[in-house]
């Protein structure tokens, strides 16, 4: 009934968005390579990757949540809590790093499950629930350590995960690629992704289509909790210590990366590869500015600018759809009032 080239809609827009973002990353890279003599070295590239794996993990699993129209503000706090609990299990409970890691993953899943239960069971908005658990998780971490306890002196075999190379790349990279790949498959090649989008576009519509809306939302949050625990372990291995303030503010970096990557904050539209590009754009910018001898504050400003630009393009298809639906209201009268 109207122009199919406009109607073809969000997929094409997303494609354009991701191409654009790839261009942004490339331009960043070329620019910093020309001003910072050591920027383009292999060592620096690995440094960028090492520093972005934890936020990258949070961002990758934030993507399905935002696709469902939700948000997870508790991710950074949960990372902090899991780091503390990991340290506690290893040092005070005497578990091996592997066993402690497995238990930490379980704790992360339970914490994600708490978010899920509050959101689906009590039908509270995700923003409110995760704002609450944002304080709760951080507060628990501080209570356990009384704000001063720090876990250090991890064995070298554990620190390997965060500081050494494996298969020629930083050791955490294969793990990150595994998680990112799995989530990509979940979102883009399996029915789960389809239902995440359906819930994000129209939660009631999805319910009327027989989709188990609550179970799908729960899956997204439990996945996010588990992977936040993994990020906590990698974080601890990278820095060699676990403190209660670990991962402070990471949730905002993760959300920024997701939105920058073209995922609509209103839900429904978005991709995991877009998120990866968003992480890359932020990571390269932050690292490059150091090499270009610019103050750190500039990085924050430029990230903000990028985000606003990204938001205006990601809101566009939704706005168009909205305008269209208003124009198309042909119902003669709202018969059922």
């Amino acid at each position: 009934m109207s122009n199919p080239s406009i109607q073809r809609g969000w997929k094409a827009a997303l494609l354009r968005h991701e191409t654009l973002l790839l261009l942004v990353v490339a331009v960043e890279w070329l620019y910093f390579n020309s001003v910072g003599p050591r920027f383009g070295s292999v060592d620096n590239s690995f440094d960028i990757i090492r520093h972005s794996v934890e936020i990258g993990l949070l961002a990758v699993v934030m993507t399905p949540i935002i696709l469902t129209g939700g948000i997870d503000l508790s991710a950074g706090s949960l990372l902090g809590l899991c780091a503390i609990l990991f340290g506690k299990l290893w040092r005070d409970a005497g578990l091996s790093p592997v066993m402690a890691g497995v238990c930490t993953l379980g704790i992360g899943a339970v914490a994600g499950g708490l978010n899920a239960v509050l959101i689906t069971g009590l039908r509270l908005p995700p923003l409110i629930v995760t704002l609450g658990t944002y304080s709760l998780f951080r507060g628990l971490g501080e209570a356990i350590t009384r704000g001063v306890d720090t876990f250090t002196n991890f064995p070298a075999s554990f620190l390997f995960l965060g500081q050494e190379r494996w298969l020629g790349v930083p050791a955490q990279v294969p793990l990150f690629l595994l998680v990112a790949g799995a989530v990509w498959v979940l979102v883009h090649r399996m029915t789960f992704g389809r239902t995440f989008r359906a819930v994000g576009f129209a939660p009631e519509g999805a319910r009327y289509a027989g989709i188990p809306v609550e179970r799908r939302i729960a899956l997204a949050y439990v996945l996010a909790g588990t992977v936040a625990a993994l990020a906590a372990i990698i974080y601890t291995a990278r820095l060699g210590q676990a403190k209660a303030d670990a991962g402070t503010g990471y949730e905002l970096f993760a959300i920024t990366a997701v939105v920058l990557g073209g995922t609509s904050i209103f839900g429904g539209i978005g991709s995991v590869h877009g998120t990866l590009l968003g992480v890359a754009a932020i990571a390269v910018l932050n690292n490059g500015l150091v090499h270009a001898r610019q103050p750190r504050e500039v990085a924050g400003m430029l990230t903000g600018l990028l985000l606003v630009l990204a938001l205006s393009t990601s809101a566009l298809p939704k706005l168009l759809a909205l305008l269209r639906s208003h124009r198309q209201t042909v119902n003669p009268e709202p018969i059922k009032s």
């Binding site: 809609g9 969000w10 090649r189 399996m190 029915t191 789960f192 992704g193 389809r194 239902t195 989008r197 359906a198 576009f201 129209a202 009631e204 519509g205 999805a206 009327y208 289509a209 027989g210 989709i211 429904g268 539209i269 759809a321 639906s325």
Partner: peptide, 29 residues
């Protein structure tokens, strides 16, 4: 418009929505 069809999704995706488990074995699209 609110319950019957998800306007942003393709009509094929709309039509398969209630039979995911049947036409997508192992949840694979």
């Amino acid at each position: 418009r609110r319950h019957g069809v998800i306007l942003e999704m393709h009509i094929a995706q709309n039509m398969s929505m209630a039979i995911h488990s049947r036409i997508f074995p192992a949840a694979w699209l």
